[in-house]
Design a protein around this nucleic acid. Structure first.
Length: 560
RNA sequence: GCAGGCGUAGUGUAGUCUGGCAGCACAAGGGCCUUCCAAGCCCUUAGCCCGGGUUCAAAUCCCGGCGCCUGCACCA
């Protein structure tokens, strides 16, 4: 019980924030349940996220399936990059990653099929590195969970919510009235079959993400919201550890401007969550560390008891995802960039002469003509050779005309680039607990210093004595608060001090006590969690009083 | 996935070596008391991770599994 993590796990289980799933069956690694308090608090975190990122910036929200067909994850690259081939030693049972075993013999171990790998193991007579035993068959290890859709059709559980946004780009772009930048957000669960999940809630196999895909025009320059000036602790991938303002970082091209914007907003968000921003830094990925889709990634890390922990990642994904989905689906997923002035450009165009092509190529003439029209051509007329559906055709110069015409062009199509801030809700949740936890100096009892907006329960209502009608009055105050939408609970068990202590342990910001004076003037005492100071508030003002503090309109001492 | 350590009421632990009625503290529930920060007293609930083996007898010894922790590997 000496370290912070076990203390937090203790409170979490005892009071109902979270615990390991399937406990009665011995638990299951990488899966956690949110208990009554945790569920409420997680919802508060998500609500704040919606407010800070979605409503604040006018993003649009989607909600797409968790299961996707194989083709989507082929296109996204996850299927290739997320699959490891393993072989197991027949005698000692050790498992090895194939690419590490055979990289001495072949240049591109990642590109091989299982059959090819087995042939290479046989050819070079590769044995178990540990015991020299014979190696078994190649097995696939997916970091994505797979399932079946229909009979025999393979599906995968999404490893990120992002693909659900990319595949819908065209529709969303239209709904957004073809405006860029366009920010699309999604909140939901994602799944990764981690090889060795450990560290409690920090590495889960099923986890909650809140992701934004901000689609931008790569040639327009920075065209998003004004960047708030915030000091950032940035650890660059050249090893430099710097403090830089978000505005400077953008201006000096130290950090991509869209990423700079999100870093600044993240600082504010984390602060509202109750995370100590002195213990927050942004760490740039090294080139070899980058995900397959990214050219620039910064992790937002929070210092926890076990060291720096990634809670948010901001990636510049470029055109990677949209261009792959365009290739795999055959659908146009481009955006349209309108020129400021209509441009007139001269183009040389091939106009097929059907009266020649028709008799010459008969049934194929239409397809040949279409191909000709799509060709670009410079210089004089000459015999052309084209290929249609694998067959080559020779086109004589008299079978087409070269026409020079002036056309109006109002814009061009392009694949938008994507900036992706991706928030790990569960990790944020845990980070809040660690940064909120403290023990009172005198009594050593535990307090969670939750920001009122995040706190799962806003108020405890206690009768000073459970007699003389105080209990009845207190229950009325409780109903009153609940009717007004303030999540509160009633407690009359034990001394008043004990009840305060119970409330503090789950981070309840306010304790409302009904005492003898309440009977006379309908006021109650409200005690603030961290200072333990009290003010008297009229019952009729109680809801407004609490709401104002939650919304940061007033301080605790401003009694209305 | 490997190696090591660990697994006893809700939580923390004693007992395991040396097999013989599973104990303590806190928490929780009920009661008494109590005029604002874990007071006190009485009562109650509640446990040997799962499965198999050895034995007259297993929390204890053996085997397998699961989970947790640490290190290695992994972490798109």
């Amino acid at each position: 019980m000496e370290n912070l993590r076990s203390k937090i796990n203790d409170v979490a289980k005892r009071r109902g924030f979270y615990w390991n799933s399937y406990d009665i069956y011995g638990g299951l690694g990488g899966f956690y349940d949110y208990g009554p308090l945790g569920s409420l608090m997680k919802k508060n975190i998500v609500d704040l996220w919606l407010k800070e990122f979605v409503y604040h910036d006018g993003l649009i929200l989607v909600d797409t399936p968790i299961i996707g067909p194989e083709i989507v994850y082929r296109a996204s690259g996850h299927l290739d990059k997320f699959t490891d081939y393993m072989v197991r030693c027949k005698s000692c049972g050790h498992a090895f990653r194939v690419d590490e075993l055979i990289d001495k013999y072949v240049e591109t171990p990642d590109a091989l099929s299982p059959d090819e790998i087995e042939r290479i193991i046989e050819t070079y007579n590769i044995k178990c590195p540990d015991c020299g035993g014979e190696l078994g068959h190649v097995e696939e290890f997916h970091l994505m969970f797979s399932t079946n859709i229909d009979l025999g059709k393979k599906g995968f559980l999404r490893p990120e919510t992002a693909q659900g946004i990319f595949v819908n780009f065209s529709n969303l772009y239209r709904i957004n009235r073809e405006k860029l930048p366009m920010g699309v957000a999604q909140i939901g669960r994602a799944f990764r079959n981690e090889i060795s999940p450990r560290q409690g809630m920090l590495r889960l196999r099923e986890f909650n993400m809140a992701e934004i895909e901000l689609f931008v025009d790569p040639e327009s320059g920075y065209k998003w919201r004004e960047i708030p000036e915030r000091m950032l602790h940035a650890l660059r991938n050249d090893g430099r550890d710097i403090k830089i303002s978000s505005v400077e970082a953008c201006k000096n091209e130290v950090i991509n401007c869209y990423i700079s914007y999100y870093m600044a907003r993240i600082i504010d968000f984390l602060q509202k969550l109750g995370i100590d921003t002195e213990r927050v830094r942004f760490r740039e990925h090294h080139p070899e560390e980058l995900a397959h889709y990214s050219t620039e990634t910064w992790d937002c890390e929070v210092l926890l008891s076990k060291g720096w922990m990634e809670v948010i990642g901001i990636s510049y994904r470029g055109a990677y995802d949209l261009s792959h989905h365009m290739d795999y689906s055959g659908q146009d997923t481009r955006a349209f960039r309108r020129y400021q002035d209509e441009r007139k450009i001269k183009i040389e165009r091939i106009v097929p002469r059907m009266e020649i092509l028709g008799p010459k190529f008969k049934a194929n003439a239409q397809k040949i003509a279409k191909k000709l029209e799509e060709m670009e051509m410079e210089g004089d007329k000459r015999p052309l050779e084209i290929e249609v559906e694998g067959k080559k055709y020779r086109i004589p110069p008299d079978a087409y005309d070269l026409v020079v015409e002036e056309v109006k062009v109002s814009g061009e199509r392009f694949i938008p680039h994507v900036v992706e801030p991706s928030f790990g809700i569960d990790r944020l949740f845990y980070a809040i607990l660690e940064h909120s936890y403290y023990e009172r100096e005198d009594s050593k009892y535990k307090v969670l210093r939750f920001n009122p907006i995040i706190a799962p329960v806003k108020a405890g209502v206690f009768p000073l004595m459970s007699k003389d009608g105080l209990d009845v009055l207190a229950k009325q105050v409780l109903s009153f608060l609940r009717e007004k939408g303030v999540n509160a609970y009633y407690d009359e068990s034990g001394s008043i001090g004990r009840r305060y202590a119970r409330a503090d342990e789950i981070g309840t910001p306010f304790c409302v006590t009904v005492d003898y004076q309440t009977k006379e003037d309908s006021t109650v005492t409200v005690r603030e969690r961290d200072s333990t100071e009290q003010v008297r508030v009229k019952i009729s003002h109680l809801v407004e009083f609490i709401r104002n503090i939650i919304e940061e309109k007033r301080g605790f001492k401003d009694v209305p």
